[in-house]
Structures are given as C-alpha cells and as structure tokens.
C-alpha cells in the first residue's frame, strides 16, 4: 500500500523533473522545484511508513517549511534582479 504511494510519487517526481529540464521560463522551473519539494515531503513520509519508522516525519516537516521559504526567496531574488536589469 505504501509501495503504491511511493511509486506514484516517484513517477510524479520524474514528470516534474521533465518539466524542470524543459523549462521554458524560469517560473516553470521554480514551479517544478516547488512541486518536487512537496512530493519529497510526501515521499519521505511514505518511506518512513514503508520502513516502519515514522520518526522520519520530522524531516518531512522541516522540508515543508524549507520548500516554502526557498520558493519565496527565489522569487524575491528574481524580482530584484529583474528590477536591476530594468534601470
């Protein structure tokens, strides 16, 4: 059962990776990274159950936060550097 979830998550990560490779815009890539981040959170939770050690959830939790902070930081950076290029 957790195996099915893990397989689905791995397939989805592969699809999101394809999107990250293809782009075309920076935002597509950021979306792909964010998406893979969410899937990694779920993947680690699923792996924890698969291995019978749900203590792994702490990492999932940490990830859920880092992923968000990372996305916002990247967007702020892109905006700032675009503004600099503008003038």
């Amino acid at each position: 059962m957790f195996m099915a979830a893990t397989a689905a998550l791995l397939v989805t990560i592969a699809l999101a990776l394809a999107r990250a490779f293809a782009g075309p815009s920076v935002y597509d890539r950021v979306l792909a990274v964010n998406s893979i981040g969410t899937k990694t959170v779920l993947l680690i939770a699923a792996l924890g159950f698969l291995a019978g050690r749900p203590d792994f959830l702490d990492i999932s939790l940490l990830y859920a936060l880092i992923n968000f902070v990372g996305t916002i930081a990247v967007l702020r950076f892109i905006r700032q550097s675009r503004a600099q290029e503008g003038n």
Partner: peptide, 22 residues
Amino acid sequence: LIAGGAFFVMVGGVGLVRMPDF
C-alpha cells in the same frame, strides 16, 4: 485514501507536463 491520493498526485504530474503554458 492512499490510492486516491496516489491517483491525484500523478494527475498533477501529468498536467505539469501536458499543459500548454506556465
């Protein structure tokens, strides 16, 4: 629940590849 979740997760992945723009 997990089967449903797995299904929707994959749908999201397919959509991410298939949709025409950002």
